[in-house]
């Protein structure tokens, strides 16, 4: 086996481990901790269907489903890896689509979990009977959550990858629909990131009971993760273009795998490190938590 083949197989193994085992396991530990230590009987506001509904069991069932989906993704990964080893398949750099589709399968449980969380918040808002509403008397600014030099870096990298791409296309993209679609796609992705940040900073409260401190933490995590994703995409695109222009196509699957692992690791580490479950103020989810206006 060549160095390239060993690197590819090791990175694929690392992708299976990180995205389908390690981080899902960390996520499951966090949710299990919440379900065990903050049960619906004591913290009903955290479980919007807790009234007359066994949401403790429902939470555990959903968590179990999440665990099974990740086990399935890991098994598929091991099956691909085993097939490569048994049949003597030699990676030649044409596995970009394999890495991409496998990554999509791996993040599907995370996407479903995110969707489920948004639904959970919606139910919390619908079940919210508290007439007392709170707001912070300070404006929220981007600089409260991230250093502006990182924002500058993100803009700079976006511009750099755009200029690099145009340079690669000899600055003649007006009659190249594929190039226009690529530029528009990357711009749209960054616009979505901007929309996500605006939504979390100035949009409706997701969790109607969350303390102000925890809310600011949540905003910080989303802003940092989004910025990291934008920076990551630009760096990946620049490197990807570089390997294409220097006839290093066969490194693309390796780069893609590294990129996916980094983007998931950075995003989830930001969340796990900045939003520790034992620091969350769960008192706001107790049944009799009613505050009168002062």
């Amino acid at each position: 086996m060549t160095f390239f083949e060993i690197t590819f197989l090791l990175l694929f193994l690392s992708q299976i481990f990180l995205i389908s085992y390690y981080y899902p396991n960390e996520f499951i530990k966090r949710v299990s901790y919440i379900l065990d230590n903050y049960p619906p009987s004591e913290y009903p506001k955290f479980y919007p269907k807790a009234y007359g509904y066994d949401s403790d069991m429902a939470g555990k069932a959903r968590l179990n489903f999440y665990r099974k989906m990740n086990i399935f993704a890991a098994l598929v990964g091991f099956a691909i890896l085993s097939w490569m080893l048994i049949t003597g398949y030699r990676p030649d750099g044409s596995e970009e689509m394999l890495i991409l589709f496998y990554f999509m399968l791996q993040v599907a449980p995370l996407m479903l979990a995110s969707k489920s969380t948004m639904k959970h918040y919606k139910l919390m808002r619908q079940a919210n009977e508290n007439s007392v509403r709170r707001a912070d008397l300070q404006p929220r600014r981007l600089s409260d959550f991230i250093s502006l030099k990182y924002l500058f870096l993100a803009v700079l990298l976006y511009a750099a990858q755009l200029v690099y791409y145009l340079y690669w296309k000899d600055f003649t993209v007006s009659d190249d629909p594929e190039a226009i679609a690529t530029i528009a796609g990357i711009a749209a992705m960054n616009l979505i990131y901007i929309g996500v940040v605006i939504r979390i900073m100035y949009g409706k409260r997701l969790d109607p009971h969350q303390s102000e401190k925890d809310k600011l933490k949540t905003i910080g995590i989303v802003v940092k993760s989004t910025l990291a994703a934008s920076i990551g995409v630009s760096i990946f695109l620049i490197i990807n273009l570089y390997v294409q222009t220097h006839d290093l196509h066969h490194y693309q699957p390796i780069l893609m795998s590294i990129y996916f692992q980094l983007i998931v690791s950075i995003g989830l580490n930001i969340e796990f490190n900045n939003y520790r479950v034992d620091d969350v103020d769960f008192e706001v989810y107790r049944a009799d938590n009613r505050v009168s206006p002062t």
Partner: peptide, 12 residues
């Protein structure tokens, strides 16, 4: 002070 939009959304 917060913008009108921020405060309105915070209060719902």
């Amino acid at each position: 002070l917060p913008s009108i939009r921020q405060m309105a959304n915070d209060f719902g």
